[in-house]
């Protein structure tokens, strides 16, 4: 999957058309020539923000494309998901136990301990 634009020719660099936000951010935020402005914006904070937001944005971008809402189902990010992950595991274990018990009962000569 590429985001390539060959509208070169006389206009040199028009920038990729539907650029991924993460790609824009990592270029726009802490790049460029450093010139002191009149209004001081705390760049250190911006840098920290970049990292955090870039991760967030990258994930959301990708997820949107894939039609996934992973943050809703990822146990690390959603307590609801954490619960349901546990529930899933629990259910699975119960099923396996049930099928094991069923098997054991069929072979009656071995008493269960």
């Amino acid at each position: 999957m590429s985001n390539v634009d060959f509208r070169t020719g006389s206009a040199p660099v028009p920038g990729p058309p539907n650029a991924n936000l993460a790609d824009i951010l990592e270029r726009v935020l802490d790049k460029g020539i450093v010139i002191a402005g009149d209004i001081k914006i705390d760049l250190l904070d911006i840098e920290l923000l970049t990292i955090r937001l870039r991760l967030f944005v990258a994930s959301v971008d990708t997820a949107k494309k894939a039609g996934i809402d992973w943050w809703e189902t990822d146990p690390a990010l959603s307590s609801r998901a954490a619960r349901s992950a546990l529930q899933d595991e629990n259910r699975e274990l119960r099923d396996r136990l049930a099928s094991l018990e069923e098997g054991t009962e069929q072979s009656k000569e071995t008493p269960r301990t």
Binding site: S2, N3, V4, D5, V13, A19, K31, G32
Partner: peptide, 12 residues
């Protein structure tokens, strides 16, 4: 592959 970009990363 993404581009072409204005050379943001090669300015400083």
């Amino acid at each position: 592959l993404s581009g072409p970009w204005v050379p943001y990363s090669f300015i400083s």
